[in-house]
Amino acid sequence: MVSRTLLALSLILAGGLASPVMAEVLIMPNGHPEAARLPMQPHRGMTMQQVLKRFGQPTQRLVPIDTPPITRWVYPKYTVYFEDRYVIHTVVHPGVHLAP
């Protein structure tokens, strides 16, 4: 279910962009897929100001699309998705080493 949600979110947010966003999915011992997470990454509900204060400036800020505005901030290891000014999801880039 989580992987379908991530795929749907990726396709919606990528709408017409050259490269869709991809998330690494781990299969946990209980058999349920979980999104890859880093020890330190923005979490759902944080504001843009909180993300800037804690994680610094992103390497890239993409233009908001749609209504309500969905904004993407790209960091070296992950991309943060905001709805309006709140984090709705953080996607770890493929190939990033995850802590055990």
Rank of each mutant, 00 (worst) to 15 (best):
P29G: 09
P29H: 02
P29N: 05
N30G: 06
N30W: 01
G31Y: 06
G31V: 05
G31T: 12
G31L: 08
H32Q: 10
H32N: 12
H32D: 05
H32S: 08
P33F: 12
E34F: 13
E34G: 10
E34C: 11
A35E: 12
A35M: 13
A36N: 06
R37K: 15
R37T: 15
L38V: 04
L38E: 03
L38T: 02
P39D: 02
P39A: 00
M40A: 10
M40P: 00
M40F: 04
M40T: 06
Q41S: 00
Q41Y: 06
Q41A: 13
Q41C: 12
P42D: 01
H43P: 02
R44P: 02
G45A: 06
M46Y: 00
M46V: 12
M46A: 08
T47V: 10
T47D: 09
T47L: 11
T47I: 07
M48L: 11
M48T: 14
Q49L: 05
Q49C: 12
Q49K: 15
Q49T: 02
Q50F: 00
V51W: 06
V51T: 08
V51E: 08
L52E: 02
L52K: 11
L52V: 11
L52R: 11
K53V: 09
K53H: 11
R54Y: 01
R54M: 03
R54G: 00
R54T: 04
R54S: 02
R54C: 00
F55P: 02
F55K: 02
G56A: 09
Q57T: 13
Q57N: 09
Q57H: 05
Q57I: 05
P58Y: 11
P58G: 14
P58T: 15
P58M: 14
T59R: 08
T59M: 06
Q60W: 09
R61D: 04
R61E: 09
L62C: 08
L62W: 04
L62R: 13
V63F: 04
V63M: 12
V63K: 15
P64R: 09
P64V: 07
P64L: 05
P64H: 10
D66M: 14
T67Q: 13
T67E: 15
T67M: 01
P68V: 01
P68F: 03
P68R: 02
P68H: 06
P69F: 01
P69E: 03
I70N: 06
I70E: 03
I70Y: 07
I70P: 00
T71G: 08
T71F: 07
R72Q: 11
W73L: 06
W73C: 13
W73S: 07
V74S: 08
V74F: 04
V74H: 08
Y75L: 12
Y75S: 10
P76K: 02
P76F: 00
K77D: 15
Y78I: 01
Y78V: 10
T79W: 09
V80S: 01
Y81W: 05
Y81Q: 13
Y81I: 13
Y81F: 05
F82M: 10
F82N: 10
E83R: 08
E83Q: 09
D84V: 01
R85D: 01
R85S: 13
R85I: 13
Y86F: 14
Y86P: 03
Y86I: 14
V87A: 14
V87F: 05
V87L: 13
I88Q: 14
I88Y: 03
I88E: 14
